[in-house]
């Protein structure tokens, strides 16, 4: 009889360990594993995948009715919303500075600073703040956010080729983590990580965002680029070994499957269930490819994905 000997995969590298939260806040540490996702028999996985909930600084105008129903009135006040999110199990809050976008209200430095302050005092979990994605605007508001959160080790994005200098400078000055985002490409992700570290940002102050494609909308590309990044990192390339953050909620809930209530084929089934499953499937798939921090929107997904993570940690 053939005897089964499990071939172990021993990697030379490991994912950098990154800790969010400091200065009296709760902390969340991600990364640190020296194996592919959840393969405990191959190596060690010191930290589990963390789950954050996204909130916005203004009541969302374009969110799926399924989400708005789940959250109710709290979306009108970011601080109340953040507290509720922590009750629902958020280990970190992602604050989306939606109102600062030139097309969404174009609020400025004062508003960005005020809402950051507000969330920091409302909850004690780590904070992630995402700007508008418009480089010039982000260069204006993100330094204010950083200053407001000095010493509390928040994570700040978007950090792209066009604005990385500003983000890196404020992260170094105020002790924060930068979130470089690159468009579904291993080399571009690495290149941006090089720019950040060359500019002096410590390697354990980076959470990389490889761009999330939702289920049915580019998931397979994100999945494979993440697997490749992870394998390169474990293979010893320190500049691809950053922990990965996926903004799953944002991409999953903008799709028709999660958003549209009427005029759909019967074969799509119940809208609420479908939307939640859409988010959960995107999360579980990307977790298999190496996600270290998933950002979600629906309370039910937070509970179910959180439970799945606990089970995957064995």
């Amino acid at each position: 009889m053939p005897s089964v000997e499990i071939p172990l995969e021993k990697w030379t590298g490991q994912v950098h360990q990154v800790t969010l939260g400091a200065g009296g806040r709760k902390t969340v540490t991600v990364g640190g594993e020296n194996t592919l996702p959840y393969l405990h028999f191959d190596g060690t996985i010191p930290n589990k995948t963390a789950v954050a909930i996204e909130i916005q600084d203004i009541a969302p105008a374009d969110w799926s009715p399924t989400l708005l129903k789940a959250w109710g009135d709290v979306v009108n006040d970011p601080a109340t919303w953040a507290k509720k999110a922590v009750e629902y199990g958020a280990e970190a809050i992602l604050l989306n500075l939606k109102s600062a976008h030139p097309d969404e209200g174009n609020t400025g430095i004062a508003e960005a600073k005020a809402v950051t302050d507000k969330i920091l005092s409302a909850v004690d979990v780590p904070l992630i703040v995402i700007g508008t994605g418009v480089a010039d605007k982000d260069n204006e508001i993100l330094p204010a956010v950083s200053e407001a959160a000095r010493g509390q080790r928040i994570a700040i994005g978007n950090c792209e080729e066009k604005n990385y200098r500003t983000v890196v400078a404020v992260c170094i000055a105020d002790g924060h983590i930068a979130i470089p985002s690159s468009p579904v490409d291993l080399n571009l992700a690495k290149q941006l990580n090089i720019l950040l570290t060359d500019a002096g940002l410590p390697i354990d102050a980076i959470l990389m965002d490889p761009t999330t494609g939702a289920l049915g909308y580019g998931l397979e590309y994100t999945y494979s680029v993440m697997e490749r990044l992870r394998m390169a990192g474990l293979g010893g390339d320190k500049l691809t070994a950053m922990p990965i953050i996926n903004n799953v909620g944002e991409d999953a809930w903008k799709q028709k499957e999660a958003k549209v209530a009427q005029g759909l084929p019967e074969s799509w089934g119940d809208m609420e269930t479908r939307g939640i499953i859409w988010e959960e499937q995107t999360a579980i798939s990307l977790m298999q490819a190496g996600s270290n921090l998933v950002v979600l929107r629906h309370p039910q997904s937070v509970a179910k994905v959180g439970a799945a993570i606990t089970k995957l940690m064995g």
Partner: peptide, 9 residues
């Protein structure tokens, strides 16, 4: 089995 689960899968 329900369509809302089968379709995503």
């Amino acid at each position: 089995f329900s369509p809302a689960v089968a379709y995503p899968l």
